[in-house]
């Protein structure tokens, strides 16, 4: 079945879709059937901008192990970057 498990978060950033770069609005993280990856269930992540239409989507389909590793890796990179006094991140809206 389709689990319908979906966690969502608002996002600030850019994604590169089939028609080039676009501003991101939201991340949808599913634990459900993938479209392409060859397993029954996986972690499917869509970065989307709903206001730009359904095609404004950057998608990855990961095994659960890969998804955990990605989450840990993102945290590691963040911790390194945030500890470095020479790096200042600013977001221009």
């Amino acid at each position: 079945m389709c689990t319908m498990i979906c966690e969502q978060a608002n996002m600030t950033g850019s994604g590169k879709g089939t028609e080039g770069w676009f501003p991101l609005e939201q991340a949808n993280v599913f634990y459900d059937h993938p479209f392409h990856a060859p397993w029954e269930y996986g972690v499917n992540i869509d970065f989307v901008n709903k206001s730009m239409g359904v095609g404004s989507r950057v998608s990855v389909e990961l095994s659960p192990e890969s998804a955990k590793l990605l989450a840990e890796t993102i945290i590691k990179a963040l911790e390194k970057g945030e500890k470095d006094p020479q790096i200042k991140i600013s977001v221009l809206d």
Partner: peptide
């Protein structure tokens, strides 16, 4: 009703809205 696009993109949008 959820918009037009590739079947996968439309389905992903529907899935994000809980079907």
């Amino acid at each position: 009703r959820e918009g037009k696009g590739t079947p996968e993109d439309v389905a992903a949008a529907v899935r994000a809205e809980g079907g």
